Amino acid sequence: MRRITFTSESAERCQLIFGKAFAGRLPESLKIVDSGFRKVFGERLEDEYLMPGGEHVKSVDRVFEIYQAIRASRRNAITAVGGGSLIDMVGYASSGHTDIEKLFLFPTTTVSQVMPALKGFRVNFEFVKDLLSFNCLPDKVFIDFEVSYREYACSSKSVLIFPLLVALSFDNRLFKYLFNVVVSGKDISAEQWEDIVFSSVKAYLKGIETGRFVVGTEIGRLIETASRLKAGYDSSLLFGAMMELRLAEKFGTGDSSVTEDFFRVVKLLWDSRWSSRIDMSSLVDLVEQKGGVR
């Protein structure tokens, strides 16, 4: 079991704990569980409250639903068990609730593991992506290698693109290693996966400590808002990354060879379930409403 302690600018601390088989050993708390994960995991967690995952759940209405669950449970600690959208919503709700003293996260998707929620929690409002936010840290984040490896091995190898995106943003050496893994076409073992996730999280922490963002984050948010939240998070983030890289290349601030390498792995790893189109006219209108590109 490995641990990393992250300290925010306000001196708050969060412990990230890496290991296996955490689901049955989570701290005593109210557990808000993604119903999709529950179907895969197959076992009921103690004191669980099921909610659907996905971007559409990140609403104020769902926040009030969590408040009701907190009142019924009479717990002073809460654990979010799910992907990034559910984690955002539970974190936002608990951050504004004075009865909650401890917040724990158990991310169940690759993207939510390699980009843990350490920059605050956000919910959508009136079809605007992440309009409302609370800036605070969870107390602990439990990163279970087996959970994300199951997603890679059994559901979609496309999820490897998210460690690649983190590496592209913050760690050139890790990016080159992952690029070579992808183009080799070889499957990744469980042991390799542990190293990939751990190294990606370390790179992500180093990046956000210096105030940087994952490439594609800001444009990805605009894409989702322009689509009235119909564009998926995964494809919006990747489209945002590709647009940022092309713009950087055009203005002479990017590495064209790295850009081409990233585009190559996107073609190799793109999941057919992700949206392959974006509404550029709506995106341009939104950018103009916000004062244009600065």
Rank of each mutant, 00 (worst) to 15 (best):
R3W: 08
I4C: 09
I4Q: 05
T5E: 14
T7L: 00
A11M: 12
R13M: 12
Q15L: 13
Q15F: 02
L16R: 02
F18A: 03
F22R: 09
A23K: 09
A23F: 04
L30K: 11
I32W: 03
I32E: 05
V33K: 05
R38G: 01
V40E: 13
R44T: 14
H56Y: 10
H56P: 06
K58T: 01
E65W: 01
I66S: 08
Q68L: 12
I70V: 14
R71Q: 13
R74C: 10
G83V: 01
I87W: 00
I87R: 04
G96L: 13
T98K: 15
E101D: 14
K102G: 00
K102D: 12
L103N: 05
F104P: 00
F104I: 00
T108I: 08
Q113V: 04
A117S: 15
A117C: 14
L118S: 10
V123M: 06
V128G: 02
K129M: 07
L131P: 05
K140F: 11
F145E: 01
F145L: 06
F145S: 05
F145N: 04
V147Q: 08
Y149R: 06
Y149Q: 04
A153E: 13
K157M: 07
P163M: 07
P163F: 08
V166E: 02
N172A: 14
K176R: 15
V181Q: 15
V182W: 09
V182E: 10
S184D: 11
A190G: 12
A190Q: 14
E194L: 06
E194Y: 05
D195N: 14
F198V: 06
S199G: 00
S200N: 01
K206N: 15
K206F: 05
E209M: 13
T210G: 10
R212A: 13
V214Q: 04
V214Y: 00
V214F: 01
V215W: 00
T217C: 07
E218L: 13
I219A: 09
L229Y: 07
A231R: 14
Y233A: 12
D234S: 15
S235Y: 03
S236K: 06
F239K: 06
F239S: 08
A241H: 03
A241Q: 02
M243L: 15
A248F: 05
G252A: 09
T253R: 15
S256Q: 11
S257K: 13
V258W: 04
T259V: 13
E260N: 12
V265M: 06
W270V: 10
W274G: 01
S275G: 15
R277C: 12
D279E: 14
M280F: 13
L286I: 03
V287W: 03
Q289G: 01
Q289P: 00
V293S: 01
